[in-house]
Simulated assay, not measured.
Amino acid sequence: MMIKRNLAVLFLLFLLCGTVSAVSTTLTVNVFDNNANYDAVSGASVVITKGMVSNTLYTDVNGAAQITGVEYEGVYTLSVFKSGYISQTKTITISTMPRSESVYLVSETPISIKITDENGAAISGAAINIDGKEEGTTNSAGLLHVSIGKGAYHLITVSADSYDPYSSSQYIDIDQTSLTITLTNAQSAPLILIYNEEKLPISGAAVYVDEVLVSYSDAYGRAQLPTYTSGTYDVSIEKDGYVSYEQEVQFSADTPDIIVELNYSVVPLTISVTAHEKPIQGAIVYFDGTVKGITSVNGTYTTNVKPGTTLVLSASAEGYTGTDVTYLVLADSENAVTITLSQTLPTTYIGLAALGAIIVILILILITTGKNRKTKKSRNSRPPSSGRKDSL
């Protein structure tokens, strides 16, 4: 009886152990690059083995591979493989539910990629991308050390300012330690559009690049430049009547049209004040009703005015009157204006003239009155007739 009872207990324990060993859970393996940023490694092979049974998965874009159905408290061999990295293998125990494990892969011996221009000069700051992954930028020597799978083709792209982009599939030998890539200078033929402050095109503007005259603007303000390799150039533009333009400009294949606005410079405006074709010294000159200056001994006044300005000009001097003159100041003109004044009589002269006229009128009246009296007197002094008749 005791034997049967013991056998029953042992059988129950066996069933319980079997039930516990059959409990399964999930194992998540996270794979990282053992660099400064601990970047996730996608596409890594994750192999989990127990006894003769193996299960293989690949990490996703987040560097994770999730394996279901692993046995709780089971002991497994975990192996991680990725081209360009040193493989790792270790033993793990599924001690928690669920279970996670992090693996940090160390890069294989890196390869040195050097970027140069057509003359063999190193290009710093060139961005290198391998198989769609940004690897970094070159240093002052044009170098970047990257981890890359050997004995395989890789798509390598390179971009740098002032150079045409590079893209090519490169085969990396097993024992290869360096790779040199040459970039071609980008070419561009910039178009400069030149306008004034009124947004109107300026023709005949001279365009200089690095102090060399290369073009003139046409009737539409367009100046087509010759072909240049991409880079930074000193551009200056000159045109009479305008302030010179100077600027460092970046020429590149994707540079849009360069728009330049020239500001007006001041130009001389000479005003001559005359009367009866003779210059008037000391005449007061007005701009828009405001005193601006006084004419010199030759009857002129000169000042600087911004082209495109419309002024109402006038002048005054003692004994003279004049009319206003409206004038538009031009950039390409001598800008000489003559204001003609008319002489006026002083009040004293007018009074004397009036007095003289009165005197003349009085004299005429006196003369007329004297004549009338003389005629009357002569009539009264004639002798009377005798009244005597002659006899026959």
Rank of each mutant, 00 (worst) to 15 (best):
S168N: 15
K133R: 04
S296F: 04
T369F: 15
S169I: 11
N196V: 11
G63P: 01
S147R: 02
K376P: 09
K371N: 12
L144R: 08
A121N: 14
Y242T: 03
E198V: 05
I111M: 07
L15P: 00
Q250A: 10
D60V: 10
D210I: 09
T227D: 01
V31A: 05
E198R: 10
T19L: 08
N34K: 12
V273A: 15
V80A: 04
S188H: 06
G293E: 10
G322F: 03
K292L: 14
A22D: 00
D240E: 07
V103T: 11
Q224A: 05
Y301C: 04
S215W: 07
N55C: 01
F251A: 06
I115K: 06
E261C: 06
E334A: 07
V325G: 03
E238F: 05
T369Y: 14
S272R: 13
G51Y: 09
V41S: 02
R5Y: 10
L392M: 09
E318C: 00
S342R: 01
P384N: 13
I48Q: 04
I284N: 15
A336T: 02
V291F: 15
T19S: 10
I92V: 13
F32H: 06
A205F: 14
S244I: 03
D234P: 00
T59G: 09
E238C: 00
S272W: 06
Y104Q: 04
F32L: 11
H276N: 15
A205W: 12
I367N: 12
G351P: 00
S54V: 04
L213M: 08
L143I: 13
I111D: 00
V41Q: 08
A152C: 04
L144S: 07
P383G: 12
K50P: 00
S215E: 11
S87H: 10
I194M: 12
V106S: 09
Q66C: 02
K150Q: 08
L392Q: 08
I359S: 13
M1T: 04
P110I: 03
S95I: 07
A283V: 14
P279M: 13
N55R: 05
T184V: 08
G43F: 07
T232W: 06
G63L: 03
N35M: 01
G299Y: 11
V267Q: 15
V61H: 06
S342Y: 06
A283E: 15
I258Q: 12
S140V: 04
R373N: 14
I130A: 08
I367D: 10
L144F: 08
V267K: 15
Q88T: 13
G293H: 09
S87G: 12
L57H: 10
F81G: 08
V360C: 14
S42P: 01
Y320R: 02
N185A: 13
S316D: 11
T182M: 10
I350E: 14
D218R: 04
T326A: 03
P226H: 02
G322L: 03
G74Q: 01
L12W: 01
D60P: 09
